[in-house]
């Protein structure tokens, strides 16, 4: 512990220095390119990129909401007294854990979707991602609910809380606090995963960048900007996660 005890100021300074190094590395890499780096080549395509950025965020929110619901359903089925449901959850979870996200998206869009007459690619893409993130969300519920100890349930019974009161005042407020940080982490995973939707020619950030590049040949500029735009969402998100973890921990 003692080795890690540095002042806040030193801590900020060193982190600032490392960020600077990272930027310098980026500049070095850019300068090493065969073609000149000219951000002005992106002029006229900002609307396209902005649209891609917004679509990435919207699609990710859709998948987040969807998998929060399906994840909870799967969590409940996994706790069911009916063996059929528990077995279903086990098999489903194993299948998904063994599947790469890219494969899941392609299978949903080109094989499963069409079998049900769904050919709308954005819809199948969102569906595929939602299915893929379902067991991960279910896991979050599992660990959140299991953090409420048997003794707490005993205390609730002892005082005579009704079922509704237990959930409303004791269980859910705790579960939400425990749930939030990993949920935000998963949101970050979803945002990053959504780049794969480009294989469906869906105009999220990655595909929009691709289109822009094929018209302007501004490859380096496009890739760097795309990278920065992803980081622009995911890094603040991870800072929020860290803040919530510090602020909301109950132990």
């Amino acid at each position: 512990m003692k080795n890690n005890s540095v002042s806040k100021r030193t801590n900020y300074l060193v982190h600032g220095f490392i960020i600077l190094l990272f930027i310098l590395f980026l500049v070095f890499v850019i300068l090493r390119q065969q073609t000149d780096f000219e951000i002005s080549r992106l002029d006229g395509y900002m609307a396209l990129i902005a649209e891609g950025f917004i679509k990435t965020v919207l699609v990710s929110l859709g998948v987040l909401v969807g998998s929060v619901v399906t994840g909870f359903t799967v969590f409940l089925l996994g706790k069911s007294n009916v063996l059929f449901f528990r077995a279903f959850v086990n098999v489903f979870t194993e299948v998904i854990y063994g599947t790469p996200l890219l494969v899941m998206i392609i299978i949903t869009a080109f094989v499963i979707g069409p079998a049900f007459n769904i050919f709308n690619r954005p819809v199948t893409g969102i569906l595929g991602m939602t299915i893929y993130f379902t067991p991960y969300m279910s896991n979050i519920y599992k660990s959140a609910f299991s953090s409420i100890t048997d003794e707490q349930y005993m205390a609730m019974d002892l005082f005579g809380f009704t079922s509704y009161q237990k959930y409303r005042y004791i269980i859910i407020p705790q579960v939400v606090r425990i749930l939030m940080p990993p949920l935000m982490n998963n949101f970050s995973l979803i945002i990053k995963g959504s780049a794969l939707l480009n294989v469906l020619a869906f105009r999220e950030l990655f595909y929009a960048t691709d289109i822009m590049q094929s018209r302007t040949f501004a490859y380096t500029e496009g890739y760097i900007m795309m990278w920065m735009l992803y980081i622009l969402i995911t890094i603040p998100l991870s800072q929020v996660v860290k803040y919530l973890e510090r602020r909301w921990t109950l132990e």
Partner: peptide
């Protein structure tokens, strides 16, 4: 009334 081994207060 019951007092548990660990305080068992509702932590939130």
């Amino acid at each position: 009334g019951f007092v548990f081994q660990s305080h068992n207060l509702f932590p939130h």
